[in-house]
Design a protein around this nucleic acid. Structure first.
Lengths: 384, 384
DNA sequence: TGACTTTGAGTGCATGATGAAATCAAATAG
DNA sequence: CTATTTGATTTCATCATGCACTCAAAGTCA
């Protein structure tokens, strides 16, 4: 019932009846009940040019609660506060206080969230935090967080839960970025999609039928660990910044930034390195393709924009190997995809508690597009 | 309702009521209806030593229909006829008539099935055929069937459907082998599992939460196509029979069978080849692990038994790379896993039509274990 | 052996959800 | 201003459900 409302929001009683196959009588009664309990709200009437009585639009009452989405990156942290229909209310971007321990870090996050929420703090329904590590289902606990070790400390989650006093979920940051792009960015309309992020390490996320594929040990998507290079070099070291720079140094190539690899007319030594990069990248892309056959494969992270001119070439290479290639696309939300994805997860949590059927939770638009301009518009200064 | 019956078959009215939370009154009424329509049957009473009236056991009436599972391999074809509770009724193994065209091949299969079914032919409810190729969801059509090209001809499916006059499904053979092992073999109790089969080519199948992961283009699991070797050699060529023999010939190593690679004390040249094999295999295993994080990874196909002494070593290698490794297990059903999986798919199709909820279809035991001895016991000669 | 206890299965009745059809409401077309 | 169209609500009959009770069939114990 609510499920269909989410799918085609905003809608009307008549459309709900038609879409669900439930009789209009029952729909009316159910809607009456939902309005009574404050979940749904009647909106303005449609200005339709047709004859007959005008339908009353129905929508979730977004103002009944807020959620917080946090992307806790190795260097920067982004946070978005949104209402229950995904309207961004406030956002902030600040350097991650990586010098802090787990408890202090958690308290700093809560403090910032409190500032962003303002007088809506009491309406907080759910919080999701993305972090650069593997999230195991037991607890959950975090492992493999090489770039921000303190998030492996279980007291981080304990403190967050205690101070936020609501549901708090931890999720891998690449998974969140994928969710963000799926709902608001490059992978909209692609229920099965994957992402590959070139950050400090190589991250990947997979979603099938609108649901994240998250193993119990959180290692789904760790394609960076594949020992595909000569001497068992990990794939990760061949396509991410630090690895590229190290390999350049070993080969005696001067390189100030990994982006140098993508100049249009490279010298021989650089071209050889670029070749190795391409080979490794195609392996990663092919591996993801055969792992889940995504409709769209999103490329994100700092290096991704440099790859734009060659997307078609990569796509052809994949197709050559497996006779199919997903659409390759650059991340559209950029640095905000993680926090946007965190908002999606937090909203999904809210919707589940409202009784929305599981199969509808993964469905395409949770609501208004979370548009970037608006996120920026509601940005507040780092320190008050 | 039926769903729970499948989960704990055979059961009683009282247990059904307890398990589902539905009142015993409703359960009684529903069971009455199901018995009336012939789906369910009352069995012998439980001999329980407890006081009180004895419960009447309920079970699916398996004799109301039969299904046919076919594994159409490049060299051999296996077929199992089973009743609706997965009791094997007849089986046969015969060389694949690969010289035939698509239509003739289909008719030969139907002919054999007819012979196996005997007077139960009219009870045929569903047929599933496994074949060595990628099955696309549109149609479905078949691609990448290098080892049995005629199955790509759409007339194969047309003819099968026309002659069988029931539902006929085509599924990738590795996927079926996985299903077979999941229900009856090495991966029982592991709802998310994967298989890697070393046949003429390298096949793989993935199931998550008891459901096969089948992309629309059927290329999920094509890890054999990863270009991980030197000069872009495909993974497949480094771990399967033909590739091994060719590489041996190139290196000047005499090898009569790929199994020679696994002798205990190899010469230097052979050891080097074995090393390459191991490296490639670990890449494949790691790729599957990060693709879906299976609880069990089953190894099947002709070469699999040779790997037994080294399973622990491979497992350690995976764990080294991604800090988690699935249990590695050899296929238990051997050559029968594909046909057994085909029976599972055909049964699932029947159950779905009976109205069993989707989430119960993937649940562990569809019924009596399809035990191998019994399959062999009901084997009929190749030609009558 | 026969009354009692225990457990399973079926039945009467009240309840509540549902949908078809009728009714009320609000708009436009002519 | 009336007819028509479309949306929302109400009426009423139907049906599935669960509670409580009864019937059935077994063992227990005096």
């Amino acid at each position: 019932m609510l499920s269909q409302l989410l799918r085609s929001r905003p809608t009307t009683r008549t459309r709900l009846a038609a879409d669900t196959g439930i009789s209009s009588a029952t729909v009316s009664r159910a809607v009456e009940h939902l309005i009574g309990s404050g979940v749904i709200r009647e909106g303005g009437e449609i200005v339709a040019g047709t004859r007959g009585r005008r339908a009353v639009t129905l929508d979730l009452d977004g103002s009944r609660g807020v959620v917080v989405g946090i992307d806790l990156g190795a260097s920067n942290t982004r946070m978005i506060v949104a209402d229950l229909v995904a309207t961004p209310l406030a956002s902030v971007e600040l350097p991650t206080p990586s010098e802090l321990g787990a408890v202090e870090l958690a308290e700093a996050l809560v403090h910032t969230a409190r500032r962003l929420c303002g007088d809506r703090w009491d309406l907080l329904q759910s919080v999701c935090v993305g972090l650069p590590g593997a999230v195991r289902a037991n607890g959950p606990s975090v492992t493999n967080a090489n770039n921000l070790a303190q998030v492996e400390d279980p007291r981080l989650l304990e403190t967050l839960r205690a101070r936020f006093a609501t549901h708090v979920q931890l999720v891998n940051d690449a998974d969140l970025a994928l969710l963000g792009e799926q709902r608001f960015g490059a992978a909209t309309g692609a229920p099965t999609a994957a992402i590959l992020t070139f950050g400090t390490g190589l991250g990947a996320g997979i979603a099938r039928d609108g649901v994240l594929v998250q193993g119990r040990h959180g290692i789904v998507g760790e394609f960076g660990q594949l020992p595909v290079g000569p001497l068992g070099t990990r794939l990760e070291h061949m396509v991410t910044g630090p690895g590229i720079l190290r390999r350049a140094a070993e080969s005696g190539v001067t390189m100030t930034s990994p982006a140098d690899l993508f100049v249009t007319e490279p010298e021989a030594a650089l071209a050889a390195m670029r070749n190795q990069f391409d080979t490794a990248l195609v392996i990663a892309l092919t591996a993801i393709t055969v792992a889940c056959e995504p409709d769209v494969l999103v490329l994100g992270g700092g290096l991704a924009p440099s790859l734009e001119p060659d997307l078609e070439r990569y796509r052809d290479a994949i197709e050559l190997h497996v006779h199919y290639a997903p659409r390759l696309a650059l991340a559209e939300l950029g640095a905000h995809s993680g926090a946007a994805g965190a908002v999606v997860v937090a909203l999904t949590d809210c919707y589940r508690r409202l009784g929305v059927a599981d199969d509808a939770l993964g469905d395409a638009p949770v609501g208004a597009l979370l548009d970037l301009d608006r996120v920026k518009a509601v940005a507040v200064p780092d320190r008050p």
